[in-house]
Design a protein around this nucleic acid. Structure first.
Length: 492
RNA sequence: GCUCCGGUAGUGUAGCUCGGCCAAUCAUUUGGGAUUCUCACUCCCAAGACUGGGGUUCAAAUCCCCACCGGAGCACCA
């Protein structure tokens, strides 16, 4: 084919490529992308979308990828000290090492400077209304009495605010927009509020904290962000921020937004819900196999490139989507199948005597299609077989123990068989079962919904950290080999 | 209630900007078959969609209007 129709092959390749391609960006001058998480827990599959897509674009245009921690809420969505490093690790593991890392809680002074500038220009004011009071006025398209205060008065109040003279909830800094704006979501929004609770990183150094809309607006400009791709829940955020950009004479980055992503298997778990459930002991930790965190997927043997391909395949449409982990698993299998060594693992093992069986050392390939060598398992007339297989057995049935020899079932109540040679041609399809040596290693496999206990080959112990396939069972990652082997289930 | 944004097979996606080459792409999924010392992998075949209704036009998935459905924002959360 290469000889007679090279152009067809070319075309085929192009089609293959296409599935993992993102739409082009509108570029005027370079590309600087960012992801801006609040480190109040470890990165999840949701975070991975932002990490991968933004990094992918930066890479595509030879641009820059920035990891910025928007950790400006010491109270409600309180950052976790450990989570900063988790983000760095997971970004790197996903193949999206940031070119620069910025932490908002280090840069409050800059935000204060711009706040002051806006106050001086009359584009922001200190508001002393209660939350409810302001909402009432806002919904009625009415300005509050503080809106018309002059810049000097506002500046004084701002200084007092910074000096800690007000209590939490007593005063906020609002950005003037249009109090009669037809969209209530945009009317005079809060840029700073008072939080007295110490921040996990910077302690009680600050009591006046910016809201996301303000912090992010300033940072995106300071960092020279050219394109923002994020969830569509932040669409109105853009509209609010554009007022600030207008006042400061800045140009807003180009934006696109994707819809909400829901994963069938996990439902909608927020970081704070997960945190609570872990504290209550419902999960063993952030890497519990039932959780959609990156650390959990890593422990299960999901490969970074599989996650990457999966995310790129989802694209960046504004439609809300509900996807199944099956798609991720399919991507993962493509990567893993050629490299995973095969082993026998028998869950719910049942001991079976085999009469007249000679002692044999089974020689089985580590991989069925690729020559990766063999594994050897010695047996002497007795093996473990899976309970499920025993339940399907009938007296007189001829089976083959894979890579070992043929047997004929002679009894069921205690399962027994007799050795009947090694002629593969007498075996019908589907009559091959796997087995484990009676002196094999104890193995536990933790799946999202079940824990399997059983016996496997000794050779599994050499696969620490690797993904292997337990034949007729599925792919697992070997996570511990001291004493009993502990593995986590990836997928079929 | 006000405002904004969406709606292509079971799922995700391409096409929509610039109407015709779209009886609609690719992947996954499901069913069947081939191969196989795994119920894995590979290969082959098949199934399955433009939310509905109007309009513009020689021609509409693509443009316009209405309806319906879904999502988001209206926080001193991110």
């Amino acid at each position: 084919m290469q000889r007679i129709a090279p152009e067809l092959i070319e075309e085929l390749h192009e089609k293959r490529e296409k599935e993992h391609k993102l739409p082009g960006l509108d570029i005027t001058d370079g590309v600087v992308m960012r992801i801006a998480p609040n480190p109040n827990g470890p990165p999840t599959l949701g975070s991975a979308r932002g990490i991968i897509i933004n990094h992918e674009y930066a890479k595509m245009y030879d641009g820059k990828f920035i990891l910025r921690f928007d950790d400006t809420d010491p109270k409600i969505k309180r950052p976790m000290l450990e989570a900063y490093a988790w983000y760095e690790e997971d970004c790197e593991w996903l193949g999206a090492k940031p070119d620069e890392i910025v932490i908002a809680s280090d840069r409050l002074d800059r935000y204060y400077e711009y706040a002051e500038e806006l106050i001086k220009k009359g584009d922001a004011y200190i508001c002393f209304c209660s939350q409810q009071k302001f909402k009432q006025l806002k919904d009625a398209k009415k300005a509050c009495p503080h809106r018309e205060k002059d810049a000097r008065t506002n500046l004084e109040s701002w200084k007092k605010m910074l000096a800690g003279e007000y209590d939490e909830g007593e005063a906020v800094l609002r950005i003037k927009t249009d109090i009669k704006h037809k969209d209530p979501a945009l009317r005079d929004w809060v840029a700073f509020r008072i939080v007295k609770m110490p921040h996990p990183r910077v302690g009680d150094k600050y009591q006046v904290w910016p809201m996301l809309d303000f912090e992010s607006a300033i940072e995106d400009h300071l960092l020279g962000i050219t394109h923002i791709i994020r969830g569509k829940d932040l669409m109105d955020s853009e509209k609010r921020q554009k007022f600030v950009y207008g006042y400061l004479g800045w140009e807003y980055p180009k934006t696109s937004h994707w819809g909400r992503i829901k994963i069938h298997e996990f439902g909608k778990l927020s970081t704070s819900e997960m945190k609570k459930a872990i504290q209550e002991g419902l999960y063993e930790g952030w890497d519990d196999p039932r959780l959609p965190t990156i650390c959990s997927l890593r422990r299960r043997g999901i490969q970074p490139d599989a996650i990457r391909n999966f995310m790129i395949g989802l694209g960046i449409s504004e439609t809300d989507i509900a996807v199944s982990m099956d798609t991720l698993y399919a991507e993962n299998k493509k990567i893993i199948d050629p490299v995973a060594n095969r082993y026998f693992f028998v869950h719910d093992p049942v001991r079976m005597m085999i009469e007249n069986a000679p002692p044999v050392v089974a020689k089985a390939p580590l991989h069925p299609n690729i020559d990766r060598g063999i594994r050897q398992i010695s047996t002497r007339g007795e093996v473990f077989v899976c309970k499920d297989d025993v339940e399907r057995m009938k007296e007189g049935k001829i089976l083959r123990l894979k890579d070992l020899y043929n047997i004929k079932i002679t009894s069921l109540k205690p399962p027994k068989a007799e050795y009947i040679g090694n002629d593969r041609s007498i075996i019908e399809r589907g009559a091959i079962i796997h087995w484990a040596p009676v002196d094999g290693a104890k193995v536990e496999v933790l799946a999202p919904d079940y824990e399997y206990n059983g016996v496997g080959e000794e050779g599994i112990k050499s696969e620490l950290g690797n993904v292997v396939q337990f034949e007729r069972f599925g792919f697992v990652r070997i996570n511990s080999v001291d004493g009993v082997i502990r593995a986590h289930f990836a997928h079929k």
